[in-house]
């Protein structure tokens, strides 16, 4: 099984809560590809701070509500 990066997130849940937003739509809104959104959701890529803020802003929540440091995977 692929190693997970230590920053967990709830982007998928937030997308579903926001009118079933697709990964492509979110990617377009924050300036990354659909593949990058998928990689962030699956914890295979940690976004830059700027992209993390853009994602939080898109869902109108704070960055802490989207991303969390997962102590168990360190």
């Amino acid at each position: 099984m692929a190693k997970l990066l230590p920053i967990s997130n709830c982007i998928k849940t937030l997308r579903e809560r926001n009118g079933e937003m697709t990964q492509s739509q979110l990617g377009e809104a924050v300036g990354v590809t659909r593949q990058t959104v998928a990689a962030i959701e699956q914890r295979r890529y940690s976004p830059s701070l700027e992209t993390a803020f853009r994602i939080a802003r898109e869902f109108k929540v704070s960055i802490n509500d989207v991303f969390e440091w997962d102590e168990s995977s360190v």
């Binding site: 300036g31 990354v32 590809t33 593949q35 990058t36 990689a39 890529y45 976004p47 830059s48 992209t51």
Partner: peptide, 11 residues
């Protein structure tokens, strides 16, 4: 559309 988009941070 993809062709016109520059590489993102991960790429």
């Amino acid at each position: 559309k993809q062709a016109a988009t520059p590489a993102d941070e991960r790429e």
